[in-house]
Nucleic acid binder design. Sequence first.
RNA 1: CGGGGCGUAGCGCAGCCUGGUAGCGCACCUGCUUCGGGAGCAGGGGGUCGCAGGUUCAAAUCCUGUCGCCCCGACCA
Length: 417
Amino acid sequence: MNTQPGGVWRYSSLLIPTLREEPGEAEIVSHQLMLRAGMLRKLAAGIYTLLPLGLRVLNKVERVVREEMNRAGAQEILMPMVQPAELWQETGRWQQYGKELLRFKDRHDRDFCLGPTHEEVVTDLVRREVRSYRQLPVTLYQIQMKFRDEIRPRFGVMRGREFLMKDAYSFDLDEAGARVSYQKMNDAYHRIFERCGLKFKPVEADSGVIGGAYSQEFMVLAETGEDSIKACSQCSYAANVEKQPGAACPRCQAPLETHRGIEVGHIFMLGTKYSEAMKAAVLDPQGHEQPMVMGCYGIGVSRTVAAAIEQHHDDKGIRWPAPLAPFHLHVVVLNPKDTPRAAALGYDVVLDDRDDRAGIKFNDADLIGVPAQVIIGGRTLKEGLVELKRRSDGVVRKIEPGGIGGVLAEWLGMPAV
RNA sequence: CGGGGCGUAGCGCAGCCUGGUAGCGCACCUGCUUCGGGAGCAGGGGGUCGCAGGUUCAAAUCCUGUCGCCCCGACCA
């Protein structure tokens, strides 16, 4: 599908199978709304097909992520989903990783796995191609489907087995350089989640199987989050409960408050765990071999979509933050005979030209949650006006069609492209 | 893997306890009317009741096994 900005799409030609009733399979609101809004359908436990609307939102998150990764100096690559066992045996994770790592053999009886993460592959790439400290620092990233055979997938794309992830890996000559790279990614993550319109909190976390010196998780605050976090009531300190079992802030001794969070990002200072195991080294200015100091940085792209819905919805449906919205403007044409010539507004527009009753169109529009709606029809149309409605708070303005662009720019907080 | 629940039309469900030729709402198709917040009337199509065995004259219903899905727990970059 065309994802170029500024297009006009006819609702009648899009596959948007909205559901009036709540699907029995969904427990939490983001999962329910993704199904009801026709974004998502299940193929098997934890494995989903994204429909046009769902894909458009995913693409919007990807766009924000790419822009900020590129701005931070990271370079995009694309690594294979299928990985040979040998690499994982080098780091010992072939044995360490449990059943979450889906393994299989090819026709020649060689062992492979579906990549749940890409430290081994990227380290293999860099050790082959980078020889000198002059080539550092380098940060590589990709946006790719991951597969983790979760014990218990749940809540739709919140905890799927197959999911879209942005993973980045930094390589530096020394610890100081690695800290700079880590900080750049930290800054980029703040910008990404802010741009996505999310209320989030960076927390200190355990680095788990990935390993490394220290790590931070980016938690979207939501009641339905699977993680519990402790945040200081006075300073900015916050930690995952796995990491912080105490009741008082270790920095300022103030009491800690408990919140629920959805982990949408996780950044790790890896150190030389992988570069040493895999002999990924460069020559320093003195001509000595040094293992590269690494960091790795993940964002659950599909999970971010669900997290955004958890924070932005009401009883009628989704209320997309403008940067993530599948469309910026939803044109509700009450009488298909009044279908306007779709003016090039410079925004993504969906035009509901279906031959259906007004109630169906209003309800679908609210469900899908495009941030602005134009209602064309009735008395207003006879006056030569249209109604512009803001989804977030229901504010309605009657204006001349020529004024739509201006109000949109104001409401969306973003200029036309 | 332990505990709980559910598999009946595309979706949501009833029927199962107490066995006797499978039903409701929505959706879908046709016609007429209607048309600013999920229309009305009339007609119509759609089902191996998850699957496999067993009991029985007869199984959606009872028994056994099995598969799938959901929730809680353990686990989780």
